[in-house]
C-alpha cells in the first residue's frame, strides 16, 4: 500500500541540489530543482549501485558521482552511456514546509 513519508524539511536541500533519504531499508534521492520544485527517485545508480546523492545536479539532470552516468531526475530517464536502465521516480509533495514522498 502506498503511503506518504516525510523525507526532510523543504529548506534542507539547496536549490539545484540533492539529498539522500533512507527509509525502511531502502534508499532514495530527493531533489530540489533550480525552479524550486521537488522530485524523488531511487537512491542508487542503475549502473553500479552508487548513491546518486553524492552526485551533481545540473538543471534537470543528476549526474552519478562514480562514472558520470546521467539521468533526468524528473522522469527517471537514463541519458546515455554508461547508464541504460531508467531510474524509478516517486511522487513528491510539499506540505507545511515538509517534503513528502509517496512510497508503495
Amino acid at each position: 500500500m502506498a503511503e506518504w513519508i516525510e523525507a526532510c524539511a523543504a529548506g534542507d536541500i539547496d536549490e539545484e541540489d540533492v539529498m539522500r533519504f533512507d527509509h525502511a531499508g531502502r534508499t532514495f534521492a530527493v531533489y530540489r530543482s533550480p525552479d524550486d520544485e521537488y522530485f524523488a527517485t531511487d537512491g542508487l545508480c542503475t549502473h553500479e549501485r552508487v548513491h546518486l546523492a553524492d552526485g551533481l545536479v545540473m538543471d534537470d539532470i543528476i549526474e552519478c558521482p562514480k562514472h558520470n552516468g546521467r539521468f533526468n531526475y524528473k522522469t527517471g530517464a537514463a541519458k546515455g552511456a554508461p547508464v541504460c536502465v531508467n531510474l524509478k521516480t516517486y511522487p513528491v509533495k510539499v506540505t507545511a514546509g515538509k517534503v513528502l514522498i509517496e512510497i508503495e
Partner: peptide, 9 residues
Amino acid sequence: GNSVARDIR
C-alpha cells in the same frame, strides 16, 4: 567513497 566526486566534476 564518492566524497570528492562532485567537487572534481
